[in-house]
Design a protein around this nucleic acid. Structure first.
Length: 342
DNA sequence: CCTCCACCGGAACGTGAGGAGT
DNA sequence: ACTCCTCACGTTCCGGTGGAGG
């Protein structure tokens, strides 16, 4: 969205004869200060390597490339909160807000986009004050608005009569229920359309939308599972094999034990429990696992971990991996012992 | 009310890969 | 060839903690 406005703005500026350059960076995707800055450099035509140069050096190059051109630069930092979160190192934002003091012919405008309304609390006060901030809050789309957007697009993409009103309403309602994300609603409609087409039916029904929703989620999960590093795959395998016996979720200790067994079975050096703990948290965020801190009082405090992805998807995707695949049917020793003792 | 379990999760630090500049 | 950068991924160390049981 911000991207779209940015290109429109550039066009408009062109028409009016006041050149304007735009740079769009998604901070969460970029990941670090360095890479955000590197993208900004590229946007103004300075070639930089993806690693290897000091941040200060990048800043110099950025500054130089800017003062060579004489059109102002509009910088859009999407998901800017990702940049601010890891405290202490908001040098980049600080420098950006002060960069105009050293430029003569051009200047920089900064737009930060964030879904988190409170991210400003984490900002360095110096940054906050020099950002003569103007705040615009967009609320998420409501179902009705999504419906309007959808039916507008649908006119172009679907033949008349192939799309029921109720179908559109459902797409809009489902997407509004999540985060009011228009892209999500459009995806839903597109996939539902594809499903109906594959079935050879003439109209997209509500049922297709529900199927589409499932399919989108399944595809996402499979994709994530596939691209996981070995240790994470082993962890998922461990949780999976434990979930068969322990219906109400295993705890960190159990999982780490099984994970260790799997590692020696695969001939891999196991990671520390601390490391495993953060991997589990990451898998939680990705929606593969479900980890919740629980306390058993006297008997300690730990995380209860269970599968969030379907067992079917896990077996399907992980058997593609020839190292992890053959461990899927492995029955952990500690489970056998437990069966005897109970 | 205090203890103490079984971990949690922050912080600092180490290592090796990928690359620039000289 | 050598020094200097960043980043990803791990390890080590350690203070913190909810609540059952004494």
């Amino acid at each position: 969205m911000a991207k779209f406005v940015l290109t429109r703005l550039e066009q408009k500026a062109q028409e009016l004869g006041g050149p304007l350059r735009g740079a769009y960076v998604n901070c969460r995707l970029a990941g670090t200060n360095y890479r955000v800055l590197a993208e900004l450099c590229r946007a103004v035509g300075a070639e930089v390597p993806f690693t290897g140069v000091a941040v200060g050096e990048l800043l110099d190059r950025f500054r130089e490339a800017l003062s060579n051109g004489d059109s102002p630069l509009l910088v859009v930092l999407d998901e800017i909160d990702a940049l601010v979160r890891r405290q202490e190192d908001d040098i980049l934002l600080y420098e950006l807000t002060r960069i105009n003091e050293t430029l003569r012919r051009s200047w920089v405008s900064l737009i930060g986009v964030s879904n988190d309304l409170h991210f400003k609390e984490f900002l360095d006060p110096r940054v906050l004050s020099s950002l003569s901030e103007e705040e615009v809050v967009f609320r998420p789309y409501l179902a009705d608005e999504l419906y309007d957007i959808l039916s507008d697009r649908a006119k172009a993409a679907f033949r008349p009569g192939t799309l029921h009103n109720a179908t559109l309403r459902l797409c809009a309602a489902l997407a509004a229920g999540e985060h009011g994300d228009a892209r999500r609603a459009l995806d839903l409609l597109r996939v539902a359309g594809e499903l109906a087409e594959r079935e050879g039916v003439s109209a997209v029904a509500e049922e297709h939308v529900r199927l589409a929703q499932q399919k989108i989620e399944q595809d996402r999960v499979s994709e994530v599972l596939r691209s996981l590093p070995v240790h994470s795959k082993l962890l998922v395998t461990a949780v999976h094999s434990l979930s068969i016996k322990l219906s109400d979720g295993a705890v960190t200790g159990d999982i780490y034990e099984v994970y260790n067994e799997l590692c020696s079975e695969a001939g891999i050096e196991p990671l520390t429990q601390r490391r495993v703990s953060t991997l589990v948290s990451e898998l939680d965020v990705l929606g593969i696992l479900n980890a919740r801190v629980v306390s058993f009082g006297r008997y300690g405090r730990t995380k209860r971990i269970r599968l969030a992805a379907s067992s079917k998807a896990i077996i399907e995707v992980l058997s593609e991996d020839n190292l992890v695949g053959r461990l899927l049917r492995y029955v952990p020793k500690c489970l056998q012992q437990r069966k005897k003792s109970s």
